[in-house]
Every structure is written in C-alpha cells, then in structure tokens.
Design a protein around this nucleic acid. Structure first.
Length: 257
DNA sequence: ATGGCTCTCGCGGAGAGA
C-alpha cells in the first residue's frame, strides 16, 4: 500500500498536474492540503475517472483538505474541534483498517503576529483532539505541519533557530503530538539525511537547495512496522509538461500489505 | 534592507503563503 501527503497550493490551478502525478505514482491514499476551494466546487468526477473516491473539507479561497482513496472511505472527523476559527484544516477517514488523518497546520506568519499565538493554540487543540479520541491501532496523521522539527530540516540549519517555523515553542508543540506515540516515517527510514519538502517559488530556491522539511507522514508503531520505503518526491516540485508545480513536493510512504 | 513567485478574488491590486 502506498500512502502520500501533498500540499498542492490550489487544486483548481493544479488539477492537470495532480493527474500526472496520480497516474505516475499510483498512490492508494493521498492527503491533500490547500485546496483553496469549496466542497461544492470539488471535482469529484475528475478524480472518479482516475479511480479515486474523495472526502473533502473545503473552504472558499483558502485552506481546505481532502482524502483521496482507491477504496471507499468512511468519514470520521471533519474539522478540528476547538480549531474551527482557523478554517478548514483537518479531515479523518477510515479506509479499511487504517485511520487516516490529513492536516494543514496554520502558518503563523511571524513570531510577533497574532496568528503565531493562534498557531500554537491550534496545535494544542490538535494534541487534545488526538489524545481524547479512540485511535485505531493503525493510524496515520499526515500533512503540512508548518514547523521545522530539527536544524537538519532547514537549509539554514541552526542559523534559523528562533525564526518562525523554527521556534522552541513550535518545536515543543510538534513534540507534544509525536509524544502520543507517533513516528515520523521519513526519519525512520532516513535518520541522517537532509531532505526538503518545500521550496520558495522566489529566487530560484529549489535549484539553490534552499528548502525546508515541513510535510510529514506520522504513523503509530503498528504503521511503523509496515514501512518499506519513504521518499520525498522532489521530481514533482519541477514543472511538468509546462504545468507549474506546487511549492511543496509530495511525501510518499510504501507500506507492507 | 527589501523582495524575489504563485494563488484567489475578481477585474485592480491586495492578502496569504512559508
């Protein structure tokens, strides 16, 4: 089974690009973030033609998350309790034995902006929600977390410590989540590699290797035991057939079974 | 030092992203 997460930066603008990727990589389940469209505008028929069911938590203009799956999914949660003021950022579904959640965590803007405090509060709500729920043994939470866990995950290394995405408070929030028994599947496979999942559109950041690793697939111990491989699909950060890529690359985990 | 690019809304230019 192949599962993936991808911040597509506007589904309307990325529809044909997403199709190329789905046909090439053939994932079984995908968490998508930053749809930037309403539930009503979601192109269910487009994905059905490609062999995917979709569960959507959309919103006009901003945010929005969805789960694509080969086999039908059962909705378990739409929206983060206590975090609704920050927009459509969480959806959970059961697909077979697997509980699959995808999230688009708030950005925070700057450490002095009001949104920074809201970002930390949103994380607190996420941790409470995860902790209070009856989680399946096989559970995954993936998405764009907008936090750089370790200096190795930033192209600026320790020079970025204290900046937005790299503060102690943000890193503690991410730690609070993983302390609930979740493993960063990419790091399980590649403990010492520097690899990024996001690069700024500006200034040739991709080619200069100026990126951040902020997109993760976290899994419970039972999921960790099934890992065959985890890759960050940086080839799909490049233009394809003249189509513009998202500023995020997909992250893909291959699991046994 | 700043912005450098791309998206949405909506038709001009602003806000958001990270």
């Amino acid at each position: 089974m192949r599962i993936a997460t991808w911040n597509i930066n506007g589904l309307r603008a990325r529809l044909e690009f997403t199709k190329l990727w789905l046909e090439d990589r053939a994932p079984d389940i995908v968490g998508l973030q930053e749809l930037k469209m309403t539930d009503e505008d979601f192109p269910h028929d487009f994905f059905a033609d490609l062999g995917y069911h979709a569960i959507v938590h959309g919103q006009k203009s901003w945010n929005g998350v969805a789960i694509l799956s080969r086999t039908p999914a059962e909705v378990r949660q739409v929206g983060l309790p206590g975090g609704e003021d920050m927009g459509a950022r969480l959806v959970t579904a059961h697909i077979g034995e697997l509980e699959f959640t995808t999230v688009y965590c708030p950005n925070g803007k700057t450490t002095t902006h009001d949104d920074y405090g809201r970002k930390l509060a949103w994380y607190d709500a996420l941790v409470s929600h995860w902790q209070s729920g009856d989680r399946a043994e096989q559970a995954v939470i993936c998405g764009d977390f907008n936090i750089v866990p370790q200096p190795i995950d930033s192209w600026r290394g320790t020079d970025a410590d204290g900046d937005i995405f790299h503060t102690i408070d943000e890193r503690n929030r991410l730690q609070n989540l993983t302390n609930l028994g979740l493993y960063d599947l990419y790091r399980e496979v590649s403990p010492d590699e520097q690899a990024f999942s996001w690069w700024d559109y500006r200034g040739g950041a991709f080619h200069r290797k100026h990126g951040l690793r902020i997109d993760f697939i976290f899994g419970t111990a039972a999921v960790k035991e099934r890992i065959r491989d985890v890759v960050i699909d940086r080839d799909y950060r490049k233009k394809k057939d003249g189509l513009t890529a998202s500023d995020h690359a997909p992250v893909i985990a291959e699991l046994e079974g």
